[in-house]
Design a protein around this nucleic acid. Structure first.
Lengths: 358, 358
DNA sequence: CTGTTAGCGCATTCAC
DNA sequence: GTGAATGCGCTAACAG
């Protein structure tokens, strides 16, 4: 039924071992023999059996990319970029049996359990590498469990890379993590709020993400840093509302902010998607942007430049970071010193922020 | 070094076969024995070896989801929905070794070669199922190659499901495809253009997607149907510009349309993302929306309701379709009659369309 | 209900 | 440079 390596060997009149060698290209094989084998492969339309190969070699060609929400372009862009470095830009011999890696993205949906489950599944598949993207969940128990899994994964030979996620803060260090690319969420958030303060805003509301996420905490800390420096630290707590990283949450939270402080002149959102919801809520309440209320986001997703008015936000080089993570996972790029690199965040000032009405 | 099934068996004082049985849960095992085995699994922190298991069972627990562009929420939403039906909403025994499927998404980037490569890789991994999302490429050679691959995949026991992609139009039929969920792109597009015509528009430009895609063709056909019915068939050809499915393309194409017809009163875009680009171009040329020019999109992505003005578009039930595809792939839902189901498209009239200036 | 016996298809030692 | 054995870790018949 299904054609095996032995069939190819028979047709090419060589031993199975030789076929294996030409397919993996790791051993010297005479050019003539190689030709013959490759022809047999094509003739028979042979496809290597991944599981068998993985079993014998004790490693597979799978590279897992974990994302919190695949429907969110924030993750989609990073995952796509990483994948572009992994799937291999062959294009040639499309259907052959070569040694390309298979980049696969796994959607945790932000659930700690699913994150762990996927990690286990990847471990079970003997994945060659694992890339974890986006903020981590800050529950101590979960962090420990994840760290343990990552250590085991690394133990089993998998290269572990963090992208847009801070390094594991654990006694004993990185636990097998090859590299961590951490976004400068805190610095970006600080500069964003500083921009608003410079425009003259004082009553600034903050729509934060889920409480237990590193991303949420770091961005909020940056905001607080700026507010503290301006002597407005007291405003932060009462004018901060937490929610999830989606549009609805931005909408709801903004209405709540308006209830708490009708004289609000600016809203800083956890990310661009949330900012969209904030805009909707403000408009519904009759506030014009930016004349009545300024709005700012984070991430600089593609649509952010096209809203009306265009969204002031903090640009994160998602594509570049994802691509780098992909290369790191493939071992095609040296890890940064200390295994940790900070990815800069750039303030993008656009039309959605302006000075407050005097 | 690495703990195997045999180790677990030894510790639980049973045979390897019994351990396998409790792990797979397919065979009756005495409750007491099962307990003992599970305890041993936990004690030893055992993780099943996927490749070995797949080799022996001649099937793996991998389910592949192919998408054209992972950074596009259109695909992200479908993929996430499908995955939600596959990853299994367990949550319990997070780290265990159970029989969950691993849903993995593969990003083809719209490249025919990569599509084929991924299909081969999935075949190599002996995937349990494969879901192909979004429009297909219409090159005859490629279609044949894909059909052949799918047939082989199906032959090897994989369940193949099409989501948002029309059934294979090949002599000999579906070639192993278990089910196809086809969006009513044509009908949706027709109703959208009818809406514009009813408002009084006549000079309607169309920003189409890449030429060789089924989605592009069907949407364009729907548009043409409506135009023809209104006796405006002659306008379609000169006022259609092709591009890719991204914002930049919408921007460029719209400028081109304005060059061709400065008196344009409406622009229909291939999808919402493209519509965003169209809006940007129109604004830049001093046209206000919808007073000077109406704009319409397709898909109804989450951001579409939040643009200013809100985008008139055609809603596709992406999440529902993706989830259904996931269930179909898992064999948890019966295939529709004939293996084909049409997914309805709903016109969403919002602020970006209005009657033309008289 | 449980143990025993064989491979699954391939990557590797070794010899030659 | 190539062939011949051996085993990776597990599942699937069979017995019992």
């Amino acid at each position: 039924m299904t054609v095996t390596l032995a069939d190819v060997a028979a047709r090419a009149q060589v031993s199975p071992a030789t076929v294996s060698r030409v397919l993996n290209g790791n051993y010297p094989v005479a050019a003539a023999t190689r030709e013959r084998v490759l022809r047999a492969v094509d003739d028979l339309d042979y496809v290597l059996n991944g599981p068998a190969s993985a079993l014998a070699a004790a490693t597979s060609d799978l590279v897992g990319i974990l994302v919190n929400d695949i429907a969110d372009p924030f993750f989609g862009i990073m995952a796509g970029a990483a994948q572009s470095q992994i799937g291999g830009p062959e294009g040639a011999g499309a259907g052959r049996a070569g040694g390309e890696k298979l980049a696969i993205v796994c959607n945790t949906g932000g659930s700690p359990e699913r994150e762990l489950t996927y990690l286990t599944l990847l471990q079970r598949q003997r994945a060659a590498a694992v890339i974890l993207t986006g903020g981590a969940i800050e529950d101590p128990g979960h962090s420990t469990a994840v760290a343990a899994k990552l250590a085991k994964l690394a133990d089993g030979g998998a290269r572990v890379v963090l992208c847009g996620r801070p390094p594991l803060e654990l006694p004993g260090g990185g636990g097998g993590v090859a590299a961590a690319l951490a976004f400068d969420n805190r610095g970006g958030a600080r500069r964003l709020t500083e921009h608003l303060l410079a425009l003259g805003h004082r009553r600034i509301g903050y729509v934060a993400g889920p409480v237990e996420r590193t991303t949420t905490r770091h961005r909020l800390e940056g905001h607080r840093d700026a507010m503290d420096a301006a002597g407005l630290g007291g405003v932060v707590e009462p004018l901060t509302v937490h929610g999830s990283y989606d549009r609805q949450s931005g909408y709801d939270a903004t209405l709540e902010l308006l209830r708490r402080e009708p004289e609000l002149t600016a809203v800083v959102a956890a990310n661009d998607t949330v900012a969209l919801g904030a805009c909707a809520a403000l408009r519904e309440r009759g506030r014009s942007i930016p004349d009545d209320v300024s709005v700012a986001g984070f991430d600089d997703l593609p649509f952010s430049a096209d809203t009306m008015p265009a969204l002031t936000t903090v640009r994160l080089p998602l594509y570049e970071a994802g691509a780098r993570a992909g290369r790191l996972a493939m071992g095609r790029e040296a890890a940064p010193p200390g295994g940790i690199a900070s990815v800069p965040a750039e303030l993008m000032v656009r039309g959605s922020t302006a000075g407050p009405r005097s």
